Computed example of a mutant assay.
Amino acid sequence: MTRDVSVGSVHSADGTVIGYRSVGTGPGLLIVPGTLAMAADFDGLAAALADRFTVHTIERRGRGTSGPQGDRYGVEVEAADIEAVRAATGARFAFGHSFGAFLTLEAALRGSAFERMALYEPGVSIDGSVPMDWAPESRRLLDAGKPAEAFLTFVRGMNPETSGKAPRWLLRLILRLAIRKPERLQKHALLAGSIREHAEAASRDNDFPKYARLDAPVLLMAGKGVENTGAGRAAVRLEDVLVDSELVRYPRLDHFGPEKDPATIGAAIASFCLDRSV
């Protein structure tokens, strides 16, 4: 059954307008997308959850109907954005993907009262797993009006053990074939803001033991890159730190599992949030 998506907005603590998309019926669940993503990219996951939850997908600042990142951009303002939407919607549960999962943890540390959190490959920097050595060249290429090459630099730099090993010419071809043009253009447009986002995660390298202060149950999820990607390994390390957590692996899915297979990930989120066996 197709459900209508409604669009709402709130003002965050600094006055910035933060939009969100809502669909479904039931207890509130907040989706926090990762970097280079917009709220609509998670419509499939929201639809998979809509028969059991009222799903609210935040449009993170710097994109869509939300205001700009702003001069004082940082984790603190993103956490405040999450709290503003949580308070406005009454969402009891949260799902975060990648950088959005990192922000979900940070919001919880600052008092966002989520009863349960599901996190897919959190973008938490552990032992340098969020590198930034690619960023200067990516910025230079953006300034030179070459967003496709800037994005290519980002993809190689963030995944040195996988895509980083491919020659630029080959990876350029793979990206053109694997990512539709509208999606590529979206990523190009969000890349400048993404550099700021990654810098926030990288600046907190190895401070992840602080998450031991969280007592809410957490479902950690990881795809096939659990051994050779920073985000995959972060999920494993976080299981040892979070006091009430479990890790589920999806060997057939990659880092974008929630967008590519929303039915599987949605079922796991629903079972966990409703306190059933994953």
Rank of each mutant, 00 (worst) to 15 (best):
T2D: 13
T2Y: 10
V5S: 02
S6F: 02
S9R: 06
A13I: 00
G19W: 02
Y20P: 08
R21C: 03
S22A: 14
G24A: 08
V32D: 07
L36M: 12
A37H: 00
D41N: 01
A47V: 10
A47Y: 14
A48G: 09
A48I: 11
F53R: 09
F53I: 10
R60I: 11
G62N: 12
R63V: 01
Q69I: 05
R72P: 01
V75T: 15
E76V: 10
R86K: 12
T89R: 03
R92V: 13
H97I: 00
F99N: 09
F99C: 05
G100Q: 12
A101G: 15
A101I: 09
F102V: 02
T104I: 00
T104G: 07
E106A: 10
Y120P: 03
P122G: 05
G123L: 11
S125W: 10
S125F: 05
G128M: 07
S129D: 04
D133T: 12
D133A: 12
E137A: 14
S138P: 01
R140V: 00
D143E: 15
D143F: 02
K146I: 00
A150M: 09
F154V: 02
R156E: 07
M158T: 11
T162Q: 10
P167A: 08
L170D: 03
L177F: 13
A178W: 08
I179T: 15
P182H: 04
E183I: 10
H198F: 13
N206V: 07
F208G: 05
D215K: 15
D215C: 11
A216H: 07
A216V: 12
P217S: 14
M221A: 07
A222Y: 04
G225H: 06
G230N: 12
A231R: 06
R233I: 15
R237H: 11
E239V: 09
D244H: 13
S245K: 09
E246Q: 15
V248L: 15
P251L: 09
I265P: 02
G266H: 06
A267D: 13
L274W: 11
R276Q: 15
V278G: 06
